[in-house]
Amino acid sequence: MQKPSGHAAKETARAVVELIATDAMDAVRHVAACLARRSHALLGLLCLPGPDGEGRLLVALADDGRIPRLLHELSALPGVREARQGEMELLDFQRVVAQGLAA
């Protein structure tokens, strides 16, 4: 887990972004690179590929007020079909990760 940094005023807020990807495994690197390039504090990234490669990515990150712009950028990545701010709270995200690890 990366410690949130920068944009300190709002760094306590958290958000979970949900992505639908045509090739989930391929999208992981592009999404991670995009977050790094735009200096977003990444808290967690969960990749849930389907049998045909399509799948979901769940991205937990600090909400510093730039999420709407980030969604535009992520949804424009080739291989990402949809990007939206998830309803999920960070605790739920961690629960999904834990379930995934247990399985």
Partner: peptide
Amino acid sequence: VYGLTIPIAKH
């Protein structure tokens, strides 16, 4: 090459 070009290419 794939890894090196992720941040600098459109795709």
